[in-house]
Design a protein around this nucleic acid. Structure first.
Lengths: 104, 104
DNA sequence: GAATCACATAAGTGTATGCTTATGTATTAG
DNA sequence: CTAATACATAAGCATACACTTATGTGATTC
């Protein structure tokens, strides 16, 4: 899981939209394809890139493969981005607000 | 400032390293080039991509151009990533810790 | 004012990449 | 058991992109 792979995986708008779809929950490739004007092999390629980057994980159930977001990939991006927290002055108020919501 | 441009700008390892250098503070292109085996036009191109993506801002001082990190670009990435906070279970503890440190 | 410096832009090149059609393998349904 | 389904892989193509050398413009130095 390299940072380059992370960013490259998300740099393509189609592939990023696929990743964003998985935020709604685990899906197989056919479900993921709904709503996209895309061939089946294209989707397969995108999923391979996302998997290679560590952003998604798969689970084979017979001929079906279920894909879901891999928390480790998300965490890695968070870690990278956290270096730049000093450039984000509004974070204190927003984090406090977030924590308030979480504690409810 | 599109998300695609953001991710694409950071997807190249050289360019990401340039961006990471700017976290240390404002620099001109020649300073930025130190430590990189890179031609001057290559650096110019990278800076143009980062600027186009909204990740850096520039300030011209005569023939010198100073580059610095643009907080808005960082914030935009934060916003995108925050959609995936649900996949990051350790965040509550770490955020509380961060806030504690901030309040000191 | 000439020379030097700092940077942007142009043009070219080799490699990578997002798409396609074609094909293959494994699983499931009837 | 055959046909259909689900998905991965192969191969090809057009476009994008990170690099280079070459060049140009503007600012600074001497």
């Amino acid at each position: 899981m390299s940072e380059t792979e992370l960013f490259r995986a998300l740099a393509d708008p189609t592939r990023r939209a696929v990743f964003e779809r998985l935020a709604d929950g685990e899906m197989n490739a056919t479900e993921l394809r709904q709503g996209f004007e895309m061939s089946q092999p294209a989707m397969s390629q995108h999923l391979a890139v996302l998997r290679g980057a560590g952003l998604i994980a798969e689970q084979k159930l017979g001929r079906n493969v279920l894909y879901r977001i891999n928390p480790a990939g998300v965490a890695q991006m968070h870690t990278w981005l956290s270096r730049y927290n000093a450039f984000w002055p509004k974070r204190i108020d927003e984090l406090k607000k977030l924590l308030r919501e979480m504690d409810q």
